[in-house]
């Protein structure tokens, strides 16, 4: 639709775009209020200018963080811990990152820190093969912190530049599972304090407002350094990361766009915002 003038219908349309992109009611209202203010203070009359204003606004929220967007793995050794709720794409993203780093000539090692889910270890091993990197693992049911401990020793022994650790999916509202995560972090702190550390929270773009709660609580347990937004090859827009970026000041580092090893991209806030509006 093209609008002749700036009126409530236009703002209703913007509201619909933002909310159906999962940006959330509160963030949407805040953004629209800010735009209304601008329209008033800058005496904007052209309805076409509004969408651009809106994009700028979203871009600003995301871009504030863009300096940190690149994966930090220097100086080596580096350790990347990957966490998140069930089924969001942690193990797959690890496979893709391993493939990417391997392609850049890095020596990479994987740790099978999900000892709970059925065949989680086998799944990571398939990814290890695809990426051509070794996987350190124990038996199903063993202590994940012990796996990470061993993987750190192995990373040292083999001079691995990057160790990427898988963890079991866990819902943030399960205290015991979050404590298990803290135990893993204590091992890293104690055994690998010299390593450059990334803690990546994986979020499924299909997820709605619950992702905010996920980000908050995982951040309390683990000092998240970046987000991976997966499954953007579907029709979900993943707009909830806008609210999360605003609140937690954590950058999106990668997006997942498929199930193959190449389907990982660095986050591009411009492309992301355009996609929110259905533009390529």
């Amino acid at each position: 639709k093209s609008y002749q003038k700036i009126d409530d219908d236009l703002f209703d349309e913007l509201e619909e775009i933002l909310i159906t992109a999962d940006i959330g009611v509160q963030t949407t209202m805040d953004i629209i209020d800010a735009i209304k203010d601008k329209v008033k203070s800058e005496k904007i009359k052209d309805p076409l200018a509004i969408k651009e204003l809106l994009k700028e606004q979203l871009f600003e929220i995301l871009n504030e963080l863009s300096d940190d967007e690149k994966l930090k793995i220097e100086p080596s050794p580096a350790i990347i811990l990957v966490v998140g709720v069930n089924g969001v794409g942690k193990t797959t993203s690890i496979g893709k990152i391993a493939h990417r780093l391997k392609g850049e000539g890095k020596k990479v090692l994987l740790a099978a820190g999900d000892t709970f889910r059925a065949a989680a270890i086998d799944q990571l091993q398939v990814w290890g093969k695809r990426a051509g990197v070794e996987v350190i693992h124990h038996q199903e049911g063993s202590d994940p912190a012990a796996v990470i401990y061993d993987a750190i020793q192995a990373a040292r022994a083999r001079n691995a530049e990057v160790l990427i650790c898988d963890t079991a999916g866990r819902l943030h509202n399960k205290k015991n599972l979050m404590m298990e995560l803290e135990k893993i972090f204590r091992v890293v702190e104690r055994e690998y304090s010299n390593a450059t550390r990334e803690v990546l929270l994986v979020l499924d773009a299909t997820t709605g407002q619950n992702a905010i709660q996920q980000a908050k609580i995982f951040n309390e347990a683990a000092d998240i350094t970046g987000l991976i937004l997966t499954k953007l090859d579907g029709t979900a827009k993943g707009g909830v990361v806008i609210g999360i970026s605003r609140e937690l000041k954590v950058p999106v580092k990668f997006i997942g766009v498929g199930e193959q090893k190449e389907d990982l991209q660095e986050f591009d806030s411009k492309a992301f915002v355009n996609a929110l509006f259905g533009q390529e």
Partner: peptide, 12 residues
Amino acid sequence: VDAMTGQDAVNV
């Protein structure tokens, strides 16, 4: 369907 699904649930 994952209960955490957002607005896209209708499309799916």
